[in-house]
Design a protein around this nucleic acid. Structure first.
Lengths: 223, 223
DNA sequence: AAGAGTTTGGGAACCCTTTCACAAAATCGA
DNA sequence: TCGATTTTGTGAAAGGGTTCCCAAACTCTT
């Protein structure tokens, strides 16, 4: 049996926060801030300062004690670490409501993501334009991928179609998939799969809301 | 300073998986499966069986050794635990591409979520219909909330507007927010905030893809 | 030059989550 | 009825991640 190592380097939890730091740093840079403390960055990123320092220490020591971090330098360094020196080209599979919304999203550019293609199985949608991208037939998927146009894929199809789309993506050599369809996809270990499930997020919120209602607002601890 | 307890009961990691089990169980029930093992459910939910058993043990002992779990019964029980006996009404703030896509999403009903209202600040959008919901003015937000129409809120606005929307939601008494805007919102401790950041998800995938490229496919461990 | 004030980096403790492993409880076949 | 087989439920171990805390390193003021 094969075990997929996650060899050297950066803990998963840290990797998941690097994009937040990057976003926060870009914002700070735009506002003209040259240097920021871990406390400052923590607030901007929505986490606490201890975790910022620990996370950044995994990337090496780029801060100055008594001063803080150089905003532009740190942003550049994180961008390098996450491989964002060039925009990542992504293919969006599914040009329904969600796929169209993603295709039209203007915020990708600043975050190192470029929509390279939008494909759909519905002949009526093929040829239409969403967010400046002409929808191609799903039959062109392997061409698009194998010609090196894309390295990341987003699945925005109905759940029933998601598994066969995933199979096609994997067959064409894609190893990174972001799945919006609410279904558990089966992919090889070597493929990196992330899931976004909006209904599940709401249900999690619902659980806590439900408990708050049930319980008579228990006492807060500590003076 | 106030500390928000997460008092008795179910670990956060388990709560986050309950919606997946619920979805998987509903699928199994539709296919006519009456009983399933932890192994079976694990495959359907995309996790491993040890975790399924541990998670379900937090809800009480509802399985039968040597047999498995009653699909319908377990689904009903989980639905009760997550407070999904009645659909949760949600308000969507922002009727742009993403807000419209969410408003039009047909899958919420089956997952215990009901879109109660869609609001936007743009006068040109107010009065239009998205996914069967007439867009109301954002000025009606407090009315909608205070009249008990909704208990969950989705922010689907541009990042610049997100904080003021969050403030308005909190002022109106909302305590559960799902934020799609790529910005760190500042809310009171008592408010439950979850974040969906599509670009960040892609950047995380990018990091791993980047590493795969860089490293010459290191050896697998174990024979 | 020296002392006061800031802020990083990282060791150590703590906490949460996952995985392991197996006794207990059920079914089934003979 | 009994032994073989299946599968749950759960202690215990292992593994990560977060938080705490403080020495070290820097700036600033006097």
């Amino acid at each position: 049996m094969t075990i997929l190592r996650s060899p050297a380097g950066i803990p998963d939890a840290t990797v998941a926060r690097l994009p937040l730091y990057l976003r926060a740093l870009d914002e700070l840079a735009e506002r003209g801030t040259d240097v920021c403390s871990s406390e400052h960055l923590a607030t901007a990123a929505g986490v606490n300062s201890a975790i910022v320092r620990k996370d950044l220490s995994h990337l090496g020591s780029y801060g100055t004690r008594g001063v803080g971090y150089d905003v532009r330098f740190l942003a550049g360094h994180i961008a390098t670490v996450v491989g964002q020196t060039q925009p990542w080209p992504v293919v969006i599979v599914g040009a329904g409501h969600l796929g169209s919304a993603l295709a039209a999203y203007q915020g990708f550019g600043a975050r190192g993501v470029k929509v390279a293609a939008v494909v759909d199985a519905d002949p009526d949608l093929v040829g239409t334009v969403v967010g400046g991208h002409e929808v191609r037939s799903i039959d062109t998927l392997s061409d698009v991928i194998e010609h090196g146009e894309v390295s990341l894929a987003i699945i925005a199809t109905p759940p029933a179609a998601a598994q066969s789309v995933a199979d096609a993506l994997v067959a064409a050599g894609i190893t990174s998939i972001l799945n919006f369809a609410p279904t558990a996809l089966q992919v090889p270990d070597a493929v990196d799969l992330r899931q976004v499930d909006v209904a599940a997020e709401l249900q999690i919120l619902g659980y806590h809301a439900h408990r708050r209602q049930a319980e008579p607002a228990e006492e807060a601890v500590l003076s």
